[in-house]
């Protein structure tokens, strides 16, 4: 149980000028682990996710990632091309708004196929077969493979975004409020799908959510953030059933039967 973590975050801090985004965040993540980052809007959870995805450069701290060759590398020490390749192939990023994570003018099959090509696939028939396979996995009729996501419902778009992100067999997936803004029934279906895929593929995942029920269903561990800081972290059921921090107690007690 002592092998090198897949992702290791130490003292991650981000200031926007004088304003604090997040401060002194540290955690390790191993393959197969799902970490939920919970907190209300403005708690810094999205800033943290942006730093992890290297979209923002942190003001201080380090993020090490164990590459496929087994070497742990500092994400911010990677060259631009290397970093972008990593993000597109070994990582996935499922965004809250599917339109931000999809190419809306490109067909469903193209959205998935594009990622498969990024890892070297060149044979059209194989790329299309992989895309079709993934559409099936996320429960999109393969007959829709040539349609653009513009005509898709919110739930379908989100499922397509998941297919696009998982098609390269990434080892780490970041998710930003993947189920919010969807109808409850659509949300349940998506949660079930994410849960199943994460388990089957043994992915490591970091899920930002304000919804404790989502965290309960999907995650092994939770980090509770408030005003940019991690106020409590631990096993998901332990933090939700036996919260020790005053703010976590408030969050948990504010939810109807999480």
């Amino acid at each position: 149980m002592s092998e090198t973590p897949l992702l290791s975050v130490r003292g991650l801090t981000k200031y926007y000028g004088a304003r604090l985004g997040c401060a002194d965040i540290s955690f390790d993540l191993h393959e197969g682990e799902v970490l939920a980052i919970v907190g209300e809007s403005g708690s810094g959870k999205s800033t943290l996710l942006s730093c992890l995805s290297t979209e923002l450069v942190p003001s201080a701290g380090e993020v090490h990632y164990r590459m496929r060759d087994g070497m742990a590398r500092d994400l911010f020490g990677l060259g631009e091309a290397e970093r972008r390749l990593l993000m597109r192939t070994d990582w996935g990023f499922v965004r809250q708004n599917a339109a931000d994570g999809l190419r809306m003018g490109v067909s469903a099959g193209g959205n998935v196929g594009e990622r498969v090509m990024a890892i070297g696939a060149r044979h059209y028939g194989k790329i299309r077969a992989t895309a079709s396979d993934w559409l099936e996995k996320v429960e999109i009729e393969t007959g829709r493979i040539d349609d653009t996501p513009r005509g898709f419902s919110g739930g379908m778009r989100q499922r397509l975004q998941i297919a696009r992100n998982l098609a390269t067999n990434p080892r780490l997936v970041l998710m930003d409020e993947p189920t919010s803004g969807l109808d409850v029934s659509v949300q349940a279906r998506l949660l079930d799908l994410i849960r199943q895929l994460v388990r089957e593929l043994g992915l490591a995942a970091i899920i930002v959510t304000h919804d404790l029920a989502v965290a309960r269903i999907l995650s092994h561990r939770i980090m509770v953030m408030r005003r940019g800081r991690a106020v409590e972290s631990g096993l998901t059921d332990q933090v939700l059933d036996d919260p020790s921090d005053a703010y976590t107690q408030l969050l948990v007690s504010s939810v109807l039967a999480a």
Binding site: G234, L235, D237, Q238, D241, D242, S244
Partner: peptide, 9 residues
């Protein structure tokens, strides 16, 4: 029981 399962600290 919950303590032994690690559900309660």
């Amino acid at each position: 029981l919950k303590i032994i399962y690690g559900n309660y600290r």
